[in-house]
């Protein structure tokens, strides 16, 4: 497990130690060449942009690619699913499946790919622009974009959980008493999207615990892992940005810590979006598995 995490986060940790070292270097340069101070700041900014934007953009591209492949998967699977559903007939009354749900999930992924990620990138670039040219600030605009996206995503997830729980076959297997303090802890400690995370995880769990009767625990847990690894990676990277900002605050410029903080915030929103995709993915994967199981055992 440790090498796995190392592979996952190795590059991220490297780039953050580079940021810390670079701000030390800038400190020394400021002492030696005070007339060069303005440019030292610019160059530090520059180093941080090249080094720090890379993991952030990698995550953007990662999530975009995942969204793309998941939407392709929907397009490929949807006709087969509906056709076999009609063929299977009564078997699906077991699950109270709504075909609209699948379309809905597809719609969410297309929305992510075409609208959410470009908007988020815009917010990030607006932040960078603000820090580069403090005379032309766009902080409010970036903030509005981020809060709108969070609102949109949580609305979609709320709609999902309504769709799922309306069916009535799913019940939340974990005892509420045991998970409540844990939920509270997550909500308190992850800024912006903590409560959203616990809620969406809860509704995914509610769905898959109902389904586990058909599918089996190990398959569910592997689907969960596959779907949630990108989100978890994004979340950890976002937390790293915030930690780095906190670490270098005493000796670095206000601008640089602010920029790192902003990138962190944007990545939190990206993490929320990737939860949406994970949600859609889990739904489709589980559904296909159930379908295959039903079709093979019905005979």
């Amino acid at each position: 497990m440790i090498p796995f995490i190392d592979v996952l986060l190795g590059t991220v940790i490297t780039s953050f130690s580079i940021i810390i070292l670079a701000s030390f270097m800038a400190l020394m340069m400021d002492f030696l060449f005070p007339s060069f101070k303005k440019w030292t700041r610019m160059i530090l900014f520059f180093i941080i942009l090249t080094v720090a934007l890379k993991p952030a953009f990698e995550h953007f591209i990662l999530i975009r690619d995942i969204a793309y492949s998941v939407s392709m998967m929907f397009i490929a699977v949807y006709p087969i699913l509906t056709a076999t559903m009609i063929a299977a007939g009564g078997a699906f009354s077991l699950l109270n499946f709504q075909p609209a749900m699948l379309l809905f999930a597809n719609g969410a992924v297309v929305l992510t790919e075409k609208l959410l990620i470009p908007l988020l990138t815009t917010a990030l670039l607006l932040d960078v622009g603000t820090r580069l040219l403090p005379d032309v600030p766009f902080t409010k605009l970036a903030e509005i974009i981020r809060t709108t996206l969070i609102g949109l995503v949580s609305a979609v997830v709320a709609a999902y959980s309504i769709f799922i729980t309306v069916g009535g076959t799913m019940s939340w297997a974990l005892s509420g008493l045991a998970s409540e303090p844990l939920k509270e802890l997550v909500q308190q400690n992850i800024p912006l999207i903590g409560s959203f995370m616990t809620e969406s995880l809860g509704s995914i769990g509610r769905y898959s615990s109902g389904v586990s009767v058909f599918v089996g625990g190990w398959l569910i847990s592997s689907i969960w892992t596959v779907a949630l690894v990108p989100s978890m990676k994004t979340l950890l990277t976002a937390l790293f940005y915030r930690w780095t900002a906190a670490l270098i605050e005493p000796f670095a410029d206000e601008d640089i810590t602010g920029l790192l903080d902003d990138i962190g915030k944007t990545l939190f929103v990206l993490c929320a979006i990737s939860f949406l995709i994970a949600f859609a993915f889990i739904y489709t994967a589980l559904f296909s598995v159930i379908l295959i199981k039903l079709l093979t055992t019905m005979k």
Binding site: S17, I18, L21, A22, M25, M29, T40, I43, I47, T50, V51
Partner: peptide, 11 residues
């Protein structure tokens, strides 16, 4: 340990 050209370039 910084990415190669940066320290050299800066100084």
């Amino acid at each position: 340990s910084l990415p190669n050209p940066f320290a050299k370039l800066l100084i």
